[in-house]
């Protein structure tokens, strides 16, 4: 669609939101992430690209400690959000995840009504004092998820009855409803058709106004379309990180260049 317009957005320097230093991740004996250092800006879309199994999703899941739910996974090094170490023993992952929302590869609406799907986060975090406020939050989230007009007349129908693209936007709305500051997206378009993909991409660009968005993607075109910053991962290493335009036009590392030109991956 109008992807050229999107990527032409000016890159304005923003304060650092997420800082990772010397991050190592092990799955049992497997060293999955090797010594990653990266600084992710606020109100910016950052794309993680790289071949399958390069560790980009693993690293993304470190940022809201989703890896805690996997028994054999071990993380060392520092990841700071707003200067606070999220792996500090005092940090409750539950509170962290309220602040760092996540959207998954496959749309995963709960088997509940559309309304209850979106209201789930605000309810568990106690964001609304009464029904009216909750209605308001749900409506705002659905609007921000760019799906309000499609579902406003059937909020009580199950979320699983929507089409794939609608489901994914519902999941984004669900993540947005808890008022996060960072939004992590793990290949959010890989299960969607091109039209739905375009809708979601447009949405991601909108979301940049309020959130720091980190998106893992398989598609270099998508990274080029939606992101201002791009990080290239290869075999667990962060090979190169910089402005998207620069990565795609003048990569410094030969591995980045060969991936972008399609020789590896």
């Amino acid at each position: 669609m109008k992807d050229s317009n999107i990527s032409e957005n000016d890159v304005i320097t923003q304060p650092v939101k997420i800082a990772a230093r010397n991050v190592q991740v092990y799955y049992g004996d497997n060293h999955a992430i090797k010594d990653v250092n990266v600084e992710i800006d606020d109100k910016t879309v950052t794309a993680f690209i790289g071949p399958s199994g390069c560790g980009k999703s693993t690293f993304l899941r470190c940022i809201n400690r989703m890896n805690d739910t996997i028994d054999i996974c071990r993380v060392t090094g520092d990841i700071e959000i707003d200067g606070e170490d999220i792996y500090d023993r005092k940090v409750d992952p539950v509170q962290l995840r309220a602040k760092v929302g996540m959207v998954f590869q496959k749309p995963n609406p709960f088997p509940k009504s559309i309304y209850d799907n979106v209201a789930y986060g605000p309810r568990i975090h106690g964001l609304a004092r009464n029904k009216a406020e909750l209605d308001d939050i749900v409506e705002r989230a659905l609007k921000r998820g760019a799906i309000w007009n499609e579902v406003k007349d059937r909020l009580n129908e199950p979320g699983t009855g929507l089409s794939g693209g609608q489901q994914q936007r519902l999941c984004i709305a669900r993540a947005v409803a808890t008022e996060p500051e960072v939004l992590l997206m793990d290949e959010p378009c890989s299960a969607l058709d091109p039209i739905a993909t375009a809708q979601v991409e447009e949405l991601i660009d909108e979301l940049r106004q309020n959130y720091s968005v980190v998106i893992v993607t398989h598609s270099m075109q998508q990274a080029a379309r939606v992101s201002q910053k791009t990080a290239f991962f290869h075999l667990g290493h962060l090979v190169e990180f910089g402005d998207t335009d620069k990565i795609f036009t003048a990569p410094e590392d030969p591995r980045t260049e060969s991936y972008i030109t399609g020789r590896i991956g």
């Binding site: 959000i81 707003d82 606070e84 999220i86 500090d88 940090v91 409750d92 509170q95 962290l96 602040k99 705002r140 609007k143 921000r144 760019a146 799906i147 309000w148 007009n149 008022e179 500051e181 447009e202 949405l203 909108e206 106004q209 309020n210």
Partner: peptide, 17 residues
């Protein structure tokens, strides 16, 4: 839909983790 969300998000006071 996107046009409807023109109003800026409510300012958040970021709580310490």
């Amino acid at each position: 839909d996107v046009a409807n969300t023109g109003a800026p998000a409510a300012p958040k006071t970021s709580k310490s983790l």
